[in-house]
Amino acid sequence: MRRLWGRLSSVNVQKAVWALEELSLAYERVEAGGAFGRVREPAYLALNPNGLVPVLEEDGYVLWESNAILRYVASGHGRGTLWPEDLRVRGHVDQWLDWQATTFTPAMRDAFWQTVRVPAGERDAGLIARSVAATEEAASILDAHFAGRSFAVGDAFTAADIALGCAAHRWLHLAVDRQPRPHLLAWYARVAARPAAATVLTTPIT
């Protein structure tokens, strides 16, 4: 039995769901986090003491941290597809997974929080501007990377496209002014058109 805890509007839950859908793996998703609560209940904290989503349960095995879940699902069920066989190609998948978690997503955190969760009259314009500027630096790296490339790593869709795709979806749908990034947009349109992506990228950002 495979169970995934987390609300679908969470960017981190989206990564796990997209991977499961890409690989046609059966799972039950349980709403948790945000308006659904649960994450501070003792039973949930026993699964993840951080009180965050997602959490994956699989036949008694428990795993938290979205990119750890993404790696686990991809390496266990997507070798040769989401998880390349070639060591050096796989190294680049890991590179982009780490970059998404340590650079791209943290850069946009304040812009997201301020424009989505803070009432308009209470927003910190300076905080938003600094966050947008930091995210633009990351977006420029992606735009340059995707010039002449169809996917993040190699010639095929991998777990790197899932992690980057979920983060890019959030960035591209924030109510802020952005610089034109034609290569980034072309790649995003390509991966967002995948059937498995429709499960997660149609959810409103909250």
Rank of each mutant, 00 (worst) to 15 (best):
R2D: 01
R3S: 12
L4R: 06
G6F: 11
L8P: 07
L8A: 13
V11L: 11
N12W: 01
V17W: 10
A19D: 06
A19H: 05
L23P: 10
Y27K: 09
E28H: 04
E28G: 05
R29I: 06
V30M: 09
V30C: 11
E31T: 04
A32C: 09
G34D: 15
V39H: 04
V39N: 11
V39R: 04
R40T: 10
E41W: 01
L47A: 06
P49R: 13
G51Y: 07
V53D: 03
P54W: 00
L56W: 08
E57W: 01
E58N: 07
D59G: 06
Y61G: 00
W64C: 10
E65N: 07
N67S: 04
N67L: 03
N67P: 00
A68N: 12
A74Y: 01
T81P: 00
W83I: 06
W83R: 05
E85A: 15
D86P: 10
D86N: 15
R90Q: 14
R90L: 13
H92R: 15
V93G: 01
W96Q: 02
W99Y: 10
W99D: 02
Q100F: 00
T102C: 13
T102I: 04
F104N: 05
P106C: 07
A107T: 08
A107W: 05
D110V: 14
W113I: 10
Q114K: 13
T115K: 07
V118I: 15
R123G: 11
D124H: 11
A125S: 14
A125K: 05
L127K: 14
A129P: 03
A133P: 08
A134F: 02
I141T: 14
D143A: 07
D143E: 08
G148A: 09
R149E: 06
A152S: 13
A152T: 15
A156S: 15
A156D: 14
A160P: 04
A160K: 01
A163F: 00
L164Y: 03
C166M: 10
A167D: 05
A168E: 06
H169V: 01
H173Y: 08
L174W: 01
A175R: 14
V176K: 05
Q179P: 00
R181H: 14
H183N: 15
L184E: 08
R190C: 04
R190K: 12
V191M: 12
A193C: 07
R194N: 07
T199I: 10
L201P: 03
L201S: 03
T202V: 09
T206V: 12
